[in-house]
Design a protein around this nucleic acid. Structure first.
Length: 573
RNA sequence: UGUCCCGUGGUGUAAUUGGCAACACGUCUGACUCUGGAUCAGAAGUCUCCAGGUUCGAGUCCUGGCGGGACAACCA
């Protein structure tokens, strides 16, 4: 390649890079020499639930930014509300972030690490006369707050002397009061059009045990008092959060302005990820789990990271998806097809292929020798020659997919039908000579076919063309497995945002899980381990379930179907 | 009758910061094919929410509308 071409290539590539608004902000900050040229982000989940695909977007953004700019990204648990939080969630979050492929190194932090400091900051604010102890009830406070269109009124306790505030606050800390008796509020502006500035609560009494600090505290900082300060203490430069915190930014900045903090983080808000046919709120996901509508947080139908993992999604596909959706400030609902595309894209290149019959139909080759077993060579992955080939046993008695036979086929059905020919993948061309039915029910129970010995695949003699190729498994060699097919959990495109206000649970898809007990797999698959993935040819990508697989029984989850043109054609009818 | 944020093909994101609206997913053709997969080639679809204004020139700037979202936890 000439130097000119190289230059062109480089400049063209640079031209192609269009940066999202966050990267543009960071570029500007860097250009202006802010933060000594550092980029330091953080991913700050509250450990009150499992992470979902929306968090994945945030994780990829925060850790991705740090990587791109040669900076760092912290993992910080925003654990300021002990009654909702639990170590179970801490552990799952760490597992999920790690699984996605990100490393916070030694920077695992907790807002609770800063409780002492946050308390000091609060005393500081009181001493400055910018915070006061309110002794109103929650109801009274609510009345005083006003509405978005009407200003609030000041609390009768607002002008308590500093010394009294300090004394009360210390006694709150010492546990002298019951929950709700007193509360620390910042003294800002009760008539602010921004509700967050109407003397927001910053410290409340909670006689609750905290999953990390135990009984040490009975007062806990509110999010607004903890988050910015935690960012500053961790020397975060860009504090990236979702849109609903936009109105909190003035408060975030206000808090930091009052205090002598070690750095000056900047909050930036972006639009959270939404997927159609999916819910994405922790509260609602929790409801599904607790109401046993699903099998747990890691149910393969859940949009949680652990659910997607169990379903067979790869970290690469989720990262790729997260980057593909982009970052902006407008509300969005992304088509679930985009997520599915991302796994297919990844799996197509890497997945071992194999044959599996999910709904078996007996097929006998009447002109094939009774005791002959041939070993047929099959390609492991047409996309990757280095994965080699394997041998598959072929015999007189086979199983094929029920869906691959129709007694009275419609137009454009290329598969097996009475009198029709089809190729058995990697094997021979066969012809359906006779259909055997159950005399009672009339159900098709067996196909009697003949094979053409001249047409074995790979022999060079198989010049005949047939329209269809179907997969199969030798009945005498097949191994049994259970296969679980998943469909979307909701029938409603936007279950949480129904125009008529109906509850999201009304839209649960009753057919989202189909369990097939009697599936037949080619023997090559017998050593598959939990979590292993492969493609069942013509059917989709599958993985061995981590929960229900036992020594005796293999259980597969269908991650996603293959793109299915026939399904589209037949649905149109 | 508030404040803040946001309006670009079906969906999502761009547009070198004022210069012929592009990319991805989806959709539809066709080629190829021993996976109705993959791959390849191609097509349709946005005149940028509306109305004014500034300008030689506006998706981009200004004004006014309209529409959507967030905010009235001692949640985060």
């Amino acid at each position: 390649m000439s130097e000119k071409e190289l230059n062109n290539g480089a400049s063209m590539e640079e031209e192609k890079i269009s940066k999202d608004f966050i990267r543009q902000i960071i570029d500007e900050d860097l250009k202006e020499g802010k933060n000594d040229g550092r980029v330091h982000t953080r991913f700050p989940p509250e450990p009150n639930g499992y992470l979902h695909i929306g968090h994945a977007k945030s994780i990829c953004l925060n850790f991705g930014l740090a990587k791109e700019y040669g900076g760092k990204c912290n993992l910080r648990f925003d654990d300021t509300n002990p009654v909702k939080e639990d170590v179970e969630y801490v552990d799952s979050i760490k597992e999920d972030v790690r699984w996605l492929g990100f490393d916070w190194e030694d920077r695992e932090f907790y807002a609770s690490d800063y409780f002492d400091k946050l308390y000091e900051y609060a005393e500081d604010l009181i001493k400055q006369g910018k915070a006061f102890i309110d002794s109103c009830s929650a109801e009274e406070m609510k009345e005083h707050r006003g509405t978005p269109t009407q200003p609030g009124t000041e609390s009768p306790y607002r002008n308590r002397p500093v010394e009294e505030n300090l004394d009360l606050f210390r006694r709150m800390k010492a546990g002298e009061f019951k929950e709700g008796e007193h509360i620390l509020r910042a003294k800002i502006d009760m008539s602010s059009p921004n509700m967050n500035l109407r003397d927001p609560a910053i410290y409340r009494i909670k006689h609750a045990s905290h999953h990390r600090t135990g009984e040490k505290w009975c007062i806990y900082p509110m999010y607004d008092w903890a988050h910015g300060q935690s960012d500053a203490l961790e020397m975060i430069t860009h504090s990236i959060c979702t849109l609903e915190f936009e109105n909190h930014r003035p408060l975030y900045d206000w808090c930091l302005e009052q205090l002598n903090v070690p750095s000056n983080p900047r909050q930036i808000e972006f639009a959270r990820l939404n997927l159609n046919y999916t819910i994405m709120s922790k509260r609602k996901l929790l409801e599904l789990v607790q109401g046993k509508y699903v099998d747990g947080w890691d149910d393969p139908r859940m949009p949680t990271i652990s659910g997607l993992r169990r379903r067979g999604y790869t970290p690469e596909s989720i990262r790729n998806f997260s980057e593909g959706v982009g970052v902006a400030k407008r509300n969005n609902i992304i088509d679930i097809a985009k997520l599915e595309w991302a796994v297919r894209e990844d799996m197509n290149k890497r997945a071992q292929r194999a044959m599996a019959v999910l709904k078996p139909l007996k097929l006998t080759l009447t002109n094939y020798p009774e005791d002959l077993v041939e070993e047929i060579e099959a390609v492991n992955n047409p996309e990757d020659e280095s994965m080699g080939t394997r041998m598959v046993p072929f015999s007189r008695n086979l199983f094929i997919e029920r869906d691959d036979f129709m007694e009275d086929p419609p137009r454009k059905f290329f598969r097996l039908a009475p009198g029709r020919e089809v190729r058995l993948r990697y094997g021979y061309i066969i012809k359906c000579e006779e259909v055997v039915k159950d005399p009672g029910t009339g159900e098709v129970i067996e196909l009697l076919c003949t094979y053409d010995p001249e047409t074995r695949s790979g022999t060079g003699t198989s010049t005949r063309k047939v329209k269809g190729t179907i997969h199969w498994v030798s009945a005498g060699h097949a191994i049994n497995a259970e296969v679980r097919l998943y469909d979307r959990l909701f029938n409603h495109e936007n279950p949480a945002g129904d125009k008529e206000g109906r509850d999201f649970k009304e839209f649960i898809n009753p057919d989202s899980l189909e369990i097939l007990e009697n599936c037949k797999l080619e023997p090559y698959l017998k050593d598959m381990k939990t979590g292993d993935k492969c493609q069942f040819e013509r059917l989709g990508y599958f993985c061995v379930d981590t929960k229900y697989t036992t020594k005796e029984k293999l259980v597969f989850n269908r991650t996603v179907t293959l793109r299915d043109t026939w399904a589209k054609i037949s649905k149109q009818k």
